[in-house]
Simulated scan of single mutants.
Amino acid sequence: MKSYTLPIVSSLLGSAYAASHSIDVGEGGLVFSPNSTTATVGDTVTFHFYPRAHGVARSSYSKPCAAIDNGFNSGFVQVTSGESATTFTITINNTDPIWYYCPQGDHCQAGMVGVINPP
């Protein structure tokens, strides 16, 4: 009996401790807020979009303004005012650094970049 209940208990405990993190995209200018966050395996990170048009795409440290193959990309979210009802959520699968940027126009070149689990 114990061999069957232990995995269930471990599974429930693992999901009970998963945290949710929020990152604002474009609130107050060409910024992610916060632009650095730490998350553990199983946590989720949700991006909340603000005016005008922004997105979030995975990049790398060496090429912060270029999308990586097989990375995530929210697409552009158009917002006229306030916070959009549209969000974009990723689940953390490991604690390696995850670099991201806004692919809209020259937003990245203006500093709109961020990292989850900085080195």
Score class of each variant (00 low, 15 high):
S59A: 13
R58Q: 15
P51K: 09
P64W: 14
G26F: 03
A67E: 12
Y17G: 01
D96K: 10
D24Y: 08
V45M: 01
I68L: 08
G55T: 12
S36H: 03
C108E: 10
A67S: 15
N73V: 02
P103W: 08
T89Y: 01
A39Q: 00
A19P: 00
G111L: 13
P34I: 03
P103N: 15
S36C: 01
Y50M: 02
E27T: 09
T44V: 13
A66Y: 06
I98H: 04
A66Q: 13
A66I: 11
T91S: 12
G82Y: 06
G114I: 01
D106W: 11
N35C: 09
M1E: 15
G82L: 04
S10Q: 15
F76S: 11
R52S: 14
S10A: 15
D69R: 08
N94R: 09
A18M: 09
T37W: 00
A16P: 02
P118L: 08
G29F: 10
S11T: 13
T86H: 08
N94Y: 07
V115W: 04
L12H: 11
G28L: 10
I92W: 05
H48W: 02
I90N: 08
Y17V: 14
H107G: 06
S84E: 04
V41C: 02
C108Y: 12
K63T: 14
T95A: 05
D96H: 05
G55S: 15
C108R: 13
C65L: 07
Y50T: 02
E27C: 08
A19M: 08
A85Y: 07
V79C: 10
P119A: 11
C65Q: 05
G82D: 05
N94V: 10
G114V: 01
A66P: 00
Y17L: 11
I23Y: 01
G111I: 14
N117E: 01
P103M: 13
F47P: 00
T89W: 01
I90G: 07
V113F: 03
S84W: 03
